[in-house]
Amino acid sequence: MNIFRLAGDMTHLMSVLVLLLKIHTIKSCAGKSYPCSLCFILLESSSGISLKTQELYALVFATRYLDIFTDFISVYNTIMKLIFLGSSFSIVWYIRRHKIVRRSYDKDQDTFRHFFLVLPCLLLALIINEKFTFKEVLWTFSLYLEAVAILPQLILLQRTRNIDNLTGQYVFLLGAYRALYILNWIYRYFTEPHYVHWITWISGLVQTLLYADFFYYYFSSLKNNVKLKLPA
């Protein structure tokens, strides 16, 4: 474990916590007898969260952590896997099933057919992988899928008029965690002999590059202290 990877994991955890906080806000807000102004805005405007991206992430964790009970790495590793699995599936459940949260989900805007991402990633994983075994192919699939999983969310943000802070921070943290992982891979490449994982590195790089324009608009909205807005 190195500082870059720990920072990356913590950033990833933070992004999940921000999303859970946002869902909690929507839930608690609708509980009020009279809609406060914030609640009114939250419930009326779409939450800006893409269910498609959340479902893709649940699939990413499900296919990546198949070895959670067979290969014990460390207590930290197992606990983090359980947190990511638990949170990603519960977020999908909330947006799909929860009587209040699902009202804030705008399915007419979140139209990205994520099936078009799943199939090519699966085919690619069958062709390009480190070892042609069931677990390894699914692990590679999860890497390719995670690289593109943010696309439905980024497209939804372009369509969402006013991106609220929590959603913007969620996407930023999600992009930042993989950027930190790239530093971790560079560090491990120079400090550990034989540490070479091209598949991981390239998909991690592609994933981070997909956030490039978001990062640009996110930082310029911070610098100019204006509302985050992605060009359509």
Partner: peptide, 10 residues
């Protein structure tokens, strides 16, 4: 499991 094959990152 030998460390090499086990993926030790999240």
């Amino acid at each position: 499991t030998d460390q090499e094959s086990a993926h030790d990152e999240l």
